[in-house]
């Protein structure tokens, strides 16, 4: 699949922002006054920047409000509804902490739950697609949720929890990389099932339908950069999980140490998310003799 930068920025930043808001919501840290203003601002900022970035890949973003209507069947719609509800419900908690010097968990708990549900809905947009076997698996929501919680734990300075979550995240990434490699074959879709000509024999592409490219090929058949995938997998695991864990274990808990850990984590998260798209193979490629 084509790794569109808008969607990568969206899923990484809003995941981190929502994870952090969840920690703020349950009162895992209880900032007040200016401190609260900065921290809630960070959580809101990351989430909103991410959500805005997601509209950049739309053909007609001016109609985006319509996307709130189909929550009964569509994970994309559910994500939209859940994200807006999260930001609305978190507001009383944020205002209470910033202006009235008391942390409000009454609104914080449901908002935290919604923040996690939003991340889950985002992951299900990908995990629901039978057409992309690598995504169509429980590891997709597990990875998105662990990324959000790990980043949230770091930003809220729960270093011990963050280190544990880094461990879980690293193992989960390695497992999903390796297990994902065999999933296209396991799905059983081949050029023979795609064309129904398997009863006659082995099928290969003779002539594509056109000499140039098309939307489907640009969007679903992405080969550029897959040759670097092994190196990027190492970068993803080392930066998103290993290095932040070492930083948090070795350095004293200071603003700078947490900042460093988060920056390292984000570099790894961007590499992992780029791979998430670039390595995903869509079954439509079979009609083009490509993956």
């Amino acid at each position: 699949m084509h790794p569109a930068s808008s969607v990568i920025v969206f899923t990484v930043l809003s995941g981190l922002g929502l994870g952090f808001l969840a920690f703020l919501g349950i009162g895992a840290i209880t900032p007040i006054g200016l401190h609260a203003f900065i921290l809630y601002g960070l959580g809101y900022g990351l989430t909103v920047i991410g959500l805005l970035a997601s509209t950049f890949h739309l053909g007609n973003p001016q109609r985006a409000w319509r996307a709130f209507s189909q929550w009964r069947t569509s994970w994309l719609s559910r994500e939209g509804v859940a994200s807006v509800l999260t930001l609305l419900l978190m507001a009383p908690a944020a205002i209470g902490a910033v202006f009235f010097n008391f942390p409000v968990e009454t609104f914080g708990f449901p908002a935290a739950l919604l923040a996690i549900l939003t991340v889950f809905a985002t992951s299900m947009i990908y995990a629901q697609l039978k057409t992309v076997p690598r995504w169509n698996h429980w590891t997709t929501p597990a990875l998105f949720l662990t990324f959000a919680l790990t980043g949230g734990a770091m930003l809220s300075a729960h270093t011990k929890l963050a280190v544990v979550l880094c461990g879980v995240l690293g193992l989960l990434e390695i497992f999903s990389f390796l297990q994902g490699d065999g999933r296209f074959a396991a799905r059983g879709s081949t050029m023979e099932t795609a064309t129904g000509l398997g009863k006659i024999g082995k099928v290969r592409m003779f002539e594509p339908p056109h000499t140039g490219s098309n939307y489907l090929m640009r969007e679903m058949i992405h080969k550029v950069g897959r040759k670097h995938s092994q190196r990027l997998r190492v970068i993803a695991v080392v930066f998103s999980a290993l290095l932040p864990a070492i930083v948090l274990l070795v350095l004293p808990v200071t603003f700078a140490a947490i900042g460093l850990a988060v920056v390292l984590h984000l570099i790894g998260a961007f590499a992992a998310r780029w791979l998430f798209f670039a390595e995903a193979e869509h079954v439509v490629g079979l009609y083009y003799g490509a993956r």
Binding site: L58, P61, A67, T131, L216, E219
Partner: peptide, 22 residues
Amino acid sequence: NACIGCGLCAWACPYGARELDQ
């Protein structure tokens, strides 16, 4: 008139039957 051009339906189709008009 209601399509926002998110492209998710084209992703969901195994057959490449949907194309986003550029």
